[in-house]
Simulated scan of single mutants.
Amino acid sequence: MPIVAVIFDAFGTVVQIGRKRHPYRQLLRLGALQGRRPSAADLHRLMTSSLSLDAAAETFGICLSPGQMKSLQHDLEDELDSISVYPDAVDALRLLKAEGVVTGICSNLAAPYGPVLRQHFSDVDGFALSYDVGVMKPHPGIYREICHQLGVTLGLDMPHSDERVAMIGDSVQCDRDGPRAAGISGFHLDRKGKGPISCLTQFAELALKTA
């Protein structure tokens, strides 16, 4: 079956953060110092809601001084400024676009990171970002959303379709196994070279051969 659409994960796959400051993690640590117990639900809330730093502090009941908020905001802005695109991502997208393959990005991330991602990849055909969609990978709903934007159908919804959708990312659970469970051909990217795919250009060439 021909590959008609390719979906990319974002961080660790098509972009990287040069200066990791973890401002939201810092926020939760400040909350812990105030006696608030962090939980796994915190991450889910941050990734599935459009929460700025100050809105997140209010949502979690964390009291910050103006100086603390200024410091966190500075770290967030510094982290956002340090985001850069992997060169092989540019090459892979160029190869796929030249052959008429539609492309999209599907990622779990907090709201402030979305605009930067969209700016770097203004020419892709769709974005399914967890804070917009309201669910996180590997929930099938986020894969369904990106496929809807790309005008293709999940294999889960149409098992006899002659169209094939592929996805790649650096998470086995979210970018290989999750997509496969939804009817997408999922692939794991291991930039350290310990897996079969270590470069997005290599993946794009593989996808085009299959197509």
Results as ranks from 00 to 15, higher is better:
135 V>T: 13
65 S>G: 13
116 V>Q: 14
72 L>V: 05
63 C>S: 15
130 S>R: 15
92 A>I: 00
55 A>T: 11
96 L>Y: 01
84 S>I: 13
52 S>K: 07
122 S>E: 07
92 A>M: 02
134 G>R: 02
57 A>R: 04
105 I>M: 07
122 S>A: 12
93 L>W: 03
88 D>S: 03
69 M>R: 14
89 A>E: 03
87 P>I: 03
112 P>Q: 11
91 D>G: 01
70 K>C: 11
94 R>V: 01
115 P>M: 08
138 P>E: 03
111 A>M: 14
117 L>P: 06
128 A>R: 03
101 V>Y: 00
59 T>F: 07
120 H>P: 02
136 M>L: 12
95 L>Y: 00
50 S>P: 04
131 Y>H: 15
62 I>K: 08
102 V>Q: 02
80 L>G: 05
97 K>G: 04
77 E>Y: 04
71 S>T: 13
116 V>F: 07
96 L>D: 01
129 L>G: 12
73 Q>F: 01
59 T>Y: 06
104 G>E: 06
126 G>V: 10
79 E>M: 05
59 T>V: 08
83 I>A: 06
57 A>I: 13
87 P>E: 04
84 S>R: 15
51 L>N: 09
81 D>H: 12
66 P>Y: 04
117 L>A: 08
73 Q>N: 13
79 E>P: 06
125 D>I: 00
71 S>F: 03
134 G>L: 12
111 A>I: 11
110 A>F: 09
95 L>F: 00
105 I>W: 04
73 Q>K: 03
104 G>S: 06
52 S>Q: 02
83 I>Q: 05
73 Q>C: 06
83 I>M: 08
131 Y>P: 06
115 P>W: 05
72 L>F: 07
101 V>K: 00
84 S>N: 12
62 I>L: 10
126 G>C: 11
129 L>K: 14
95 L>C: 01
87 P>G: 00
53 L>T: 03
130 S>P: 10
125 D>K: 00
132 D>A: 06
68 Q>G: 02
125 D>W: 00
59 T>A: 13
77 E>H: 10
69 M>K: 12
52 S>G: 05
85 V>T: 12
66 P>E: 10
136 M>H: 10
121 F>A: 12
110 A>W: 08
59 T>M: 07
118 R>T: 09
58 E>H: 12
111 A>Y: 13
